[in-house]
């Protein structure tokens, strides 16, 4: 694997995380419990899709095979996606969506903070831009997790159930593989394991305030970021997201 091949893989991971989560969150558009939340979810999705255009745009440039961000987003099949399993998990109820968002935002904010000092200027520039947006995402998802966790008996129970369901997907964020090792060697990105301490700090502070308990089991699902084993949910998501380009290749308006 050359350095550029590893960089391409790494950029796909970043772009696929924001693309798949952005799509998932956009599924709420018009369905959220109150208007303010509907708007907030749509805006979060919009930020994530905007970041996707930058990450996948750069991935396509690094690959140099004439593809662009749109082709990468709409013309790859499930096994070519490199997102974390966490982001492809179904929305569930509003609480589960916000718990997933919080766990992702906490990790995303730590990662982007480190990428701002990447040796690759293009990566550093996108991270600096995205980091400002993600600060707001984290503030909001953390507030909502606290509000619902430390809310009514019903909302508390649902948030604990969401945490229990999603926690096994957290470990994948911190696993390293040869792509990560190559990025570390090039000074482009940090070792994923090195993000854990800061992540744990944010998560335990917020979840304690939310009166929620982190599950004791450290069992973790994996296979998303290297594409070896996605869940059944990703294919269904892609069939909706990619339908238009599959049915009418090259369609534009």
């Amino acid at each position: 694997m050359t350095r550029d091949e590893a960089l391409f893989e790494f950029l796909l991971r970043l772009g696929d995380n924001t693309l798949i989560l952005g799509h998932r969150v956009s599924e709420w558009c018009g369905h959220a419990p109150v208007l303010e939340e509907d708007i907030a979810l749509a805006n979060t999705a919009l930020d994530l899709i905007g970041q996707t255009q930058m990450w996948l745009g750069l991935a396509a440039e690094v690959e140099g095979k004439g593809r662009d961000a749109d082709k990468l987003a709409f013309l790859r099949d499930a096994w070519d996606f490199r997102n974390l399993l966490l982001v492809e998990m179904p929305n569930g109820d509003f609480g589960q969506t916000l718990m997933r968002q919080f766990l992702f935002d906490a990790w995303h904010s730590v990662l982007l903070g480190r990428l701002m000092t990447s040796s690759d200027e293009r990566v550093a520039a996108i991270a600096a831009k995205a980091s400002k947006e993600v600060t707001y995402h984290l503030e909001r998802s953390a507030d909502t997790v606290v509000g619902l966790g430390d809310g009514t008996e019903e909302s508390h129970a649902r948030m604990q159930a969401a945490l229990d369901y999603l926690w096994p997907y957290v470990g994948e964020m911190f696993r390293s593989d040869p792509v990560d090792a190559e990025m570390v060697a090039a000074g482009i990105a940090p070792d994923p394991a090195s993000l854990r301490e800061e992540f744990d700090g944010i998560v335990s502070r917020v979840l304690t305030e939310a009166t929620l308990e982190i599950p004791a089991s450290s069992f973790g699902h994996k296979g998303g970021k290297d594409g070896s084993f996605h869940t059944e949910h990703l294919g269904h998501l892609l069939s909706t997201m990619q339908w238009l380009q599959r049915a009418y290749p090259g369609c534009e308006w």
Partner: peptide, 27 residues
């Protein structure tokens, strides 16, 4: 709400005149 009618704005309300308004977020 942390988000408003566009990504750059949040929604606030004045408790004096009770009117909601957009706030241009600081980034």
């Amino acid at each position: 709400s942390q988000f408003g009618s566009t990504p750059c704005k949040a929604q606030w309300r004045c408790k004096g005149c009770l009117e909601p308004f957009d706030y241009f977020k600081c980034i």
